[in-house]
Design a protein around this nucleic acid. Sequence first.
DNA 1: TTAATAAATGAGAATGTGTATTATTCCTAT
DNA 2: ATAGGAATAATACACATTCTCATTTATTAA
Lengths: 136, 136
Amino acid sequence: MQTQSDIRLTPQRQVILEELAKVKTHPTANEVYDMVRKRLPRIGLGTVYRNLELMADNGMILKLEVGGSQKRFDATTDLHYHIRCTGCGRVDDIQFSAMPQLDQLAANSSDYQVLGHHIEFSGICESCDDPQEAKK
Amino acid sequence: MQTQSDIRLTPQRQVILEELAKVKTHPTANEVYDMVRKRLPRIGLGTVYRNLELMADNGMILKLEVGGSQKRFDATTDLHYHIRCTGCGRVDDIQFSAMPQLDQLAANSSDYQVLGHHIEFSGICESCDDPQEAKK
DNA sequence: TTAATAAATGAGAATGTGTATTATTCCTAT
DNA sequence: ATAGGAATAATACACATTCTCATTTATTAA
Ligand SMILES: [Mn+2]
Ligand SMILES: [Mn+2]
Ligand SMILES: [Zn+2]
Ligand SMILES: [Zn+2]
């Protein structure tokens, strides 16, 4: 039995992990593809999707199913929350400490076996808040 | 100025609203389409999408951008939280009281103008937890 | 009431994200 | 070196959602 299964560290997987770890932007699969392609020009988009999914299943990275039409990925796997700009779609971390005790509350008030939770704030980021700034 | 703008209550919109209000299941656009079609057999799927979107923009209903590949809709607009079954995808309400003060916390720890938040729990629903039950 | 104008609809095409298929390449273990 | 299994690249496919536009329906102004 292993949740952290022994997945083979192919060159593609290594580069995907490294590039994802470099950024704090919670990139989409396509954005990861673009980053990775600079180092592995022949990699396929399917490989990126397949491996991001696989790494998320193995707990090596997080798959964020936030608002908007695309899933996003996060190299930081400890429980933390996010805010999404309704203007431009960017996703940033929210720094205050997580509240794992919420899971117990949810378990008490439902018939589910609760596995976890995520909080997604929405708002307007600095660039979108200040159109003058953007025009300059 | 009106957030709750004066949207015309066409027969299509009325039926969409009524059918959505009937259920507690947070249906997808397609599921709403199926419900509505029993009363308005000639309605177009595009009309359902267009009006669900418009009603959500006007605060008449909620659009839930939860995990999974489809958006879901909710006739209950006051702040409350949801849990999604990772087995079958169903979405239910979580009954404990909302925490609007979280928005202030998020505002303090970010550069965003915070507009709101949503909490999505994940877990296993009763039917999915009990395969025997499902087989019967 | 009627004519003009505007808004909404229905049908279907188009877009975009993500998944499945498959032949080929790459590892790994004998 | 060889055989079996795993991973990849290319591409086809699925499907949720949006877009386009001709037609219908509602509103407004004579
Ligand atoms: Mn993060
Ligand atoms: Mn609800
Ligand atoms: Zn923004
Ligand atoms: Zn379930």
